[in-house]
C-alpha cells in the first residue's frame, strides 16, 4: 500500500515536470527560432528552416550591422553574383523611442502621484465623486480618444511633436497610475502625516519629503508597467507622431521593415531583436517590481 502511494506520487511528480517542460518549450521555441534566424545568412533563411542551422552551423553578425547600423552589406546571391545591399539606420528610431518613452513615463507618474496623494489624504468636497470618475474612465478604450484628440492637435499645430505624444500617453496612462498609487498611498500609516502636520510641515512638504520616498516601491512597479506599455506601443505613436523618418519610433521602424522587406527574414528577425533588447533588460533586471505592479493592479475589480 505504502509502496504504491509512493509510486503514485512519483508518477504525479514526473507528470507535473513533464507538462511544464513541454509548455516551456512551446512558449520558447518561437522566440528561439527568431534569435537563431537573426544570425543566419540571408540565403540560408530563405532556403531552409532555422532548426537545420544546428546541424550545419554557419552564423554571421552582418544582419545586425545591416539592420542596426545601416551598413551596406555585400551578399553573394543564388546565382553567384556579388550584390551590395543598402542597410537601414535604426539609431534614429532608437533615440526617438527613448525621447518618447522617458517623459511619457515620468510625467504621468508625477501627476498621478500628486493626484493619488490628494485623493488619499486631503479632504475636499467631491473627493469621492471625482475618484469614482477616475475609476470609471479606467476601461474607456483609447480608440475613442484618437479622432477628437487628433483634431485638437491639428488646431493647436501640435501633430508630430514630442509634446503631443507625451501628453497622449499621459492621458491614457493616468487612470491606472492614479488608481494604483492611491491604493498604495492610502495604506501608509496615517499618524506619520498627522505628526508631521503638527510639526508645521505643509502638505507639499509632507508629500515631497515623506510620501514620495515611502511610495518608491509602488512607483517603481508603475514605472516598469508604463515603460513597457509606451516602448512597445505602435498605435498611439502612429496616430500622433506620424510615420516620418525623423520621428519614427522602433515599433514603427520594425513595422515598416515588415512592409518593405517581408521576405528578408534575416533583417526582420535582427530588427525585432534590437527592438526587444531594452524591454528584455528592463524586464529581467526589474522582474520583481513588474510582478508586484501587476499584482497591485489586480486588486481592482
Amino acid at each position: 500500500m505504502g509502496g504504491s502511494a509512493k509510486q503514485q506520487k512519483l508518477i504525479g511528480s514526473v507528470l507535473v515536470y513533464g507538462v511544464l517542460i513541454i509548455l516551456c518549450v512551446i512558449w520558447t521555441l518561437p522566440t528561439l527560432g527568431t534569435l537563431v534566424t537573426s544570425f543566419r545568412h540571408r540565403d540560408d533563411t530563405k532556403r531552409t528552416g532555422w532548426w537545420t542551422a544546428f546541424s550545419d552551423p554557419n552564423f554571421t553578425m552582418s544582419n545586425y550591422q545591416q539592420a542596426v547600423a545601416g551598413k551596406e552589406v555585400e551578399i553573394v546571391d543564388s546565382s553567384g553574383n556579388r550584390v551590395t545591399v543598402a542597410g537601414k539606420d535604426m539609431s534614429q528610431a532608437f533615440i526617438n523611442s527613448l525621447t518618447v518613452t522617458i517623459p511619457s513615463v515620468v510625467i504621468p507618474l508625477l501627476i498621478a502621484a500628486f493626484a493619488a496623494y490628494g485623493f488619499a489624504w486631503l479632504n475636499f468636497p467631491g473627493r469621492k465623486f471625482f475618484f469614482t470618475f477616475v475609476v470609471a474612465l479606467m476601461v474607456v478604450p483609447l480608440q475613442i480618444a484618437l479622432v477628437p484628440i487628433l483634431r485638437d492637435y491639428k488646431t493647436l499645430d501640435l501633430n508630430g511633436t514630442w509634446l503631443a505624444i507625451w501628453l497622449a500617453h499621459t492621458g491614457f496612462g493616468l487612470t491606472l497610475s492614479i488608481y494604483l498609487l492611491f491604493n498604495y498611498i492610502s495604506t501608509l500609516p496615517r499618524d506619520i502625516l498627522e505628526s508631521a502636520f503638527m510639526d508645521g510641515a505643509s502638505q507639499f512638504t509632507i508629500f515631497t519629503r515623506l510620501i514620495l520616498p515611502l511610495s518608491i516601491p509602488a512607483i517603481a512597479s508603475l514605472t516598469i508597467l508604463q515603460f513597457l506599455w509606451v516602448w512597445n506601443d505602435f498605435l498611439v505613436a502612429t496616430v500622433f507622431l506620424g510615420t516620418k523618418n525623423e520621428v519614427m519610433v522602433l515599433t514603427q521602424y520594425l513595422q515598416g521593415l515588415v512592409g518593405e522587406r517581408a521576405s528578408d527574414w534575416h533583417l526582420l528577425t535582427a530588427g525585432a531583436f534590437v527592438t526587444m533588447i531594452v524591454p528584455l533588460i528592463v524586464f529581467f533586471a526589474l522582474q520583481r517590481f513588474f510582478v508586484r505592479g501587476m499584482l497591485a493592479g489586480s486588486v481592482k475589480g
Binding site: T31, N232, T275, M276, P279
Partner: peptide
C-alpha cells in the same frame, strides 16, 4: 525550476505586438 518556468512563460509580456508579429509570422511562414 518554478522561477525559470515562470520567467519563460512570462517573457512574451515584455515583447511588443509588432515584435511578436515578426516572431509568429516566422512560425506561420
Amino acid at each position: 525550476f518554478e522561477v525559470i518556468t515562470k520567467s519563460l512563460i512570462f517573457l512574451p509580456m515584455a515583447i511588443s505586438f509588432v515584435g511578436a508579429g515578426v516572431i509568429w509570422r516566422l512560425v506561420y511562414a
